[in-house]
Design a protein around this nucleic acid. Structure first.
Length: 578
RNA sequence: GCGCCCUUAGCUCAACUGGAUAGAGCACCUGCCUUCUAAGCAGGGGGUUACAGGUUCGAUUCCUGUAGGGCGUGCCA
């Protein structure tokens, strides 16, 4: 099973080989030409030099060769040359129908289970203990969770790990702050929310205060019993708050590990690196050089131990890889983290390669960095008050707006309180998630609260709305089970949406290959739009011709299934009605 | 200083990895709710893809340079 493009590409590859043209040039794309044709092959022009012919003549040879094969007769309605040598392709409706039928009957919609038998670790979320989760945490968790779902769909055994920041200097800041306060009671979340920023600010201002925090960090890492006890307490409190946020977002983690879970591996790892002279002392710190000769700029060494003996995130990230390989034996580890950490991960990846901890041919380490969420001034996002907006505040704001919008709708009149709340929540989360996911992963983007919580146009709620509308239509038609897809008969009104449905495998593959959910967002939006147009163009339920009606309902059902599937892959839940 | 990334419509973003006339949403303008949910549909205006060169049959995409912006650059994460 594959997409129409893949199918056609195979046919053309055979032809290219027969004509001794480069096989790679045979690729078929969906045409952007609109009415003129459906697909196109641009390979004739690219092959012209090798063939020592005019592009136009090469195209003609290709078309003749395709037509020669009688098997292709039923497939192509028209193949012609356009412009300097574009090969324009229009398919017979029956062939498109058959393809839709095949895809629909395939339990994976034409997606190959390429990840079968492979474990993959996804590292995202990365909240810091004691720091309130802010909008910046959205990107990592939402993109990461979408990728988890996408990989899972491709057959991988996915393990998502939240990898909390629970072992660095911020821990020492809190511990030392509690000590200075002489505090010894029950720690609450509200307290933590106050203590950490206070301690962090104090450390920033005062070297001596920072030294205290560092000292506390070191002692914690050495296993000081009092510190460990206190630390465990506020970790638990903090996790509770983190869980609430992720539950609201519908973001799932298989593992709730943190930097501290790498601790048991660190001593052995460091001793081993020292023994093999891979780690050396420099300025009182223990470092590991990772630069290569052909580096454009010398990559600074990785610091394993600070001069005070404490570890930092380079160390824990390395040790975490040891843990992950030992525990899950993954073929791939994907880090969904801020682009700004690029150099850091470059260092860590090099270090584990050099040390033989993660051989390149055994585990693929992937840095899937994402761009920063900026404010309208182009700088990392801050609220008007100067702080960062809390994630929970953002969610409440979106929910409030969704409730208002819902109450305006006549539909809400016969909804009880519970359903209203439920719908508002789903709409709000859909808006937030889609607003984030629709942007290309790597580029920075501007955070705008109004746009993020808007429900019209290219938004999550628009997608929900279309899905809900189809669902309602199917309900009214009295359809409970799958319609016999064999009843599909394409005509001018529904050809476009049928063609679009056939593209799904292509977009899925692009999304997974590039770790880019936004590709699926774009496709889902186009599908929803195409459906909406189809829906507006013809009235389905009142269609007198029974065959046409059944065929269109089948198409509705397929559109619905695909839309639901993609929304699920993006981690967006659909209400029953809205 | 050096390295990485970015610059596309008034604003926010795409462009299937080099293809034909660069697409969407918002905002603006014009229509459409007495038949399936108007959170919708149909249509309109809006572009020297920052600039200058180069490679190519063909460049938003690749290369070089210039300007502007962001980030990173040994003891934060």
């Amino acid at each position: 099973m594959s997409s129409l493009c893949e199918h056609l590409t195979k046919i053309f590859e055979t032809v290219f080989e027969q004509l001794e043209l480069p096989r790679a040039n045979a690729k078929i794309n969906v045409s952007k030409q609109g009415q003129n044709c459906q697909f196109q092959c641009n390979g004739a022009m690219a092959s012209a030099k090798i063939a020592r012919k005019k592009p136009h003549d090469v195209a003609k040879d290709i078309i003749d060769q395709v037509k020669k094969n009688t098997l292709n007769k039923d497939i192509f309605k028209e193949i012609s040359i356009g412009g300097p040598g574009f090969i324009n392709i229009t398919l017979n409706d029956s062939f498109i129908e058959n393809h839709i039928k095949e895809i629909s009957n395939d339990k994976k919609y034409g997606i190959k289970e390429s990840g079968e038998g492979q474990n993959i670790v996804l590292d995202y979320g990365g909240p810091n203990i004691a720091k309130a989760m802010h909008v910046g945490h959205l990107r990592s968790s939402i993109i990461g969770d979408a990728l988890r779902r996408i990989y899972k769909y491709a057959g991988y055994n996915t393990i998502s790990d939240i990898h909390m920041g629970d072992w660095g200097t911020p821990m020492g800041m809190i511990l030392s702050e509690l000590e200075l306060m002489g505090f010894d009671g029950e720690i609450t979340m509200d307290m933590l929310a106050e203590i950490y920023p206070k301690a962090a600010a104090a450390c920033k201002e005062d070297e001596k205060r920072l030294a205290l925090a560092r000292e506390a960090t070191r002692k914690l890492q050495e296993g000081d019993p009092t510190y460990t006890q206190t630390w465990k307490k506020f970790i638990d409190v903090s996790i509770e708050g983190i869980k609430k946020n992720f539950d609201a977002l519908g973001v799932h983690f298989d593992e709730w590990k943190g930097e501290s879970d790498a601790h048991p591996y660190i001593t052995d790892m460091i001793n081993d690196l020292k023994r093999r002279n891979l780690a050396i002392e420099s300025d009182g710190a223990l470092i590991m050089p990772v630069s290569k000769e052909d580096d454009k700029k010398e990559i600074p060494p990785l610091i394993l131990l600070k001069s005070d003996g404490a570890v930092l995130y380079s160390t824990t990230d390395m040790a975490t890889i040891i843990d992950r390989i030992k525990t899950y034996n993954p073929s791939k580890i994907i880090y969904i983290v801020d682009q700004r950490q690029h150099l850091h991960f470059e260092q860590v990846f090099r270090a584990v390669h050099i040390a033989g901890i993660a051989p390149k041919d055994k585990v693929d380490l992937v840095f899937a960095g994402f761009g920063t969420m900026n404010g309208s001034d182009g700088k990392p996002f801050k609220t008007r008050a100067g702080g960062v907006m809390r994630l929970s505040d953002l969610i409440s704001m979106a929910k409030e707006k969704a409730t208002l919008r819902l109450n305006e709708a006549a539909l809400a009149k016969d909804m009880d309180e519970l359903e209203r709340k439920n719908v508002a929540h789903k709409v709000a989360i859909a808006a937030l998630k889609f607003a984030d996911l629709r942007n290309d992963r790597v580029t920075d983007y501007i955070f705008d609260i109004d746009r993020m919580t808007s429900f019209e146009g290219k938004t999550g709620p628009y997608l929900l709305y279309q899905a809900v509308r189809i669902q309602s239509l199917l309900r009214k038609a009295g359809i409970e089970n799958q319609i016999e897809i064999n009843s599909l008969k394409i005509d001018d009104i529904d050809r476009d949406i049928a063609l679009l449905l056939s593209e799904f495998p292509d977009h899925f593959n692009n999304a997974i290959n590039q770790n880019s959910p936004h590709i699926l967002c774009d496709y889902a939006y186009r599908l929803a739009q195409e459906f909406s147009s189809f829906y507006g163009n013809c009235h389905i339920l009142s269609e007198p011709d029974k065959k046409i009606k059944t065929s269109r309902l089948a198409l509705c059902q397929q559109s619905h299934k695909q839309l639901c599937l993609i929304l699920e892959l993006l981690g967006i839940e659909i209400p029953d009605r809205m």
